[in-house]
């Protein structure tokens, strides 16, 4: 864990994470097609206000760590047509990510 300012960052580049599968009511910025998928943190963007609060005119504090997480396309789409090196990445807030232990294989 890294602390910057008042924000603790649970993940660092290279960490493997799974996107939560919960389906909350209201606004959120986690695309459905990535829920339950395992990817790798590639960038730590910093801390940003929580859009799930901001959408309802609340302050969105405390700020949340935001990461770029990259996924192999062949893992995201079981019928992906294209080479295995193709990837898709999204920017995801920390409260949507859980750690994946080394050695756990992607559910392909």
């Amino acid at each position: 864990m890294t602390v910057r300012g008042n924000v603790a960052f649970r993940f660092k580049p290279g960490d493997r994470v799974r996107v939560d599968t919960r389906i909350p009511t209201g606004h959120c910025r986690t695309p459905f097609y990535l829920r339950g998928k395992v990817g790798t943190v590639v960038l730590v963007h910093g801390a940003f206000r929580n859009p799930e609060d901001l959408a309802y005119y609340r302050p969105g504090l405390p700020e949340l760590p935001l990461y770029m997480v990259r996924f192999p396309q062949a893992h995201v789409w079981l019928d992906y047509v294209g080479p295995s090196g193709d990837t898709v990445a999204a920017d995801l807030y920390e409260h949507w990510l859980t750690p994946v232990a080394a050695g756990v294989r992607d559910a392909r």
């Binding site: 080479p83 990837t87 898709v88 995801l92």
Partner: peptide, 15 residues
Amino acid sequence: PDDTEIRVLDSTADL
């Protein structure tokens, strides 16, 4: 070509 990685960036958040 197939050996070029297509890297899609989904701008889901603050960037």
